[in-house]
Simulated scan of single mutants.
Amino acid sequence: MSPPEGYSKASPGQVCHLKRSLYGLKQASRQWNAEFCLKLQAYGFVQSAHDHCLFYMISDTRCLALVVYVDGVLLAGSHESDIEALKLYLDRLFTIKDLGYAKYFLGIELVRGTAGLYLNQRKYVLDILQDAHMLECKPASTPLPPGLKLMATSGTPLLDPDRYRRLVGRLLYLNMTRPDITYSVQHLSQFVTSPTTAHWDAATHVLRYLKGSPSIGLFYPSSGSFTLESYSDADRGVLSRHGVLLTGYCVFLGGCAVAWKTKKRV
């Protein structure tokens, strides 16, 4: 490894002699990522400007994508031969371990079939319910009670606000496969600075809804059209009187949800 920045005792051209495993060094993750990115770009990949963990190669007839998390890599492509060639290339450089078709990645379950690919976070939902001691709770039919409008002054301050922040953080990650709770989680995330009992009650209502629908996810068929559709809406209710507007959108490609968001605008 090269001497770290700010270390002036090393002469030009000298390197560090490691006395421990590379994984035991603070620089390890950064050096590994830098080397891995360099080799992928040399292969022809382009690193996404929006998500630096995503790399892609696109031509008129072929598509290959790669997602990296620490030392875990997920590959997807339009041609099996392209994926196999990339795995051979990476194995020559880093000696990788091929785990076959992905079934579970970063809390997301992937179920493959002839009809298509189904993504869900059922185990992640059950883990959240277990940590909140709500595995035996009564299910709710909606993410939030109809007509509920939370305010910063609703309820009394929580004695343990970190519990609320941890829960909202986990629900934000659950949004990856659950567009149905996007609005609810966005509403709850506005109060992480000073959560109250009313905010916590609303958060537990979301958990009750998840208890009744832990397996809901996203399905992407193996065949279909490439028609792009987009829908949007705005909440002009109570919040609009305070100069605040909630907007939301959902984008579908061939009938499959590919992007969604709820945002507060002032």
Rank of each mutant, 00 (worst) to 15 (best):
S2A: 13
Y7R: 10
K9Y: 14
V15E: 03
K19S: 09
G24A: 06
S29R: 07
R30G: 02
Q31C: 14
Q31E: 15
E35K: 14
E35M: 07
F36H: 09
L38W: 07
K39D: 07
L40W: 08
Q47Y: 02
H50Q: 06
H52Y: 13
L54M: 13
D60W: 08
D60F: 07
L64D: 00
L66N: 02
V70G: 12
E80M: 08
D82R: 02
K87C: 05
Y89H: 14
L93D: 04
D98W: 09
D98G: 05
L99H: 12
G100S: 06
L106N: 10
E109K: 13
L110K: 03
A115R: 14
Y118C: 13
N120V: 01
L126C: 07
D127I: 11
I128S: 04
M134W: 02
L135Q: 14
E136W: 10
K138G: 00
P139S: 11
P146D: 06
G147Q: 11
K149P: 00
K149I: 03
L150N: 02
M151H: 11
A152Y: 01
S154F: 02
T156E: 15
P157W: 11
P161G: 01
L167K: 08
L167N: 07
V168A: 04
V168R: 06
G169Q: 12
L174T: 03
N175C: 15
T182K: 08
Y183A: 07
Y183V: 05
Q190W: 05
V192Y: 08
T193L: 12
T193F: 07
S194K: 12
H199S: 01
T204C: 15
H205L: 05
V206G: 13
L210V: 03
L218E: 06
T227C: 14
S240E: 10
G243S: 12
V244M: 10
V244W: 06
L246D: 06
G248E: 10
F252L: 15
L253I: 07
G254V: 04
G255H: 12
T262G: 07
K264I: 05
R265L: 10
R265K: 11
V266Q: 11
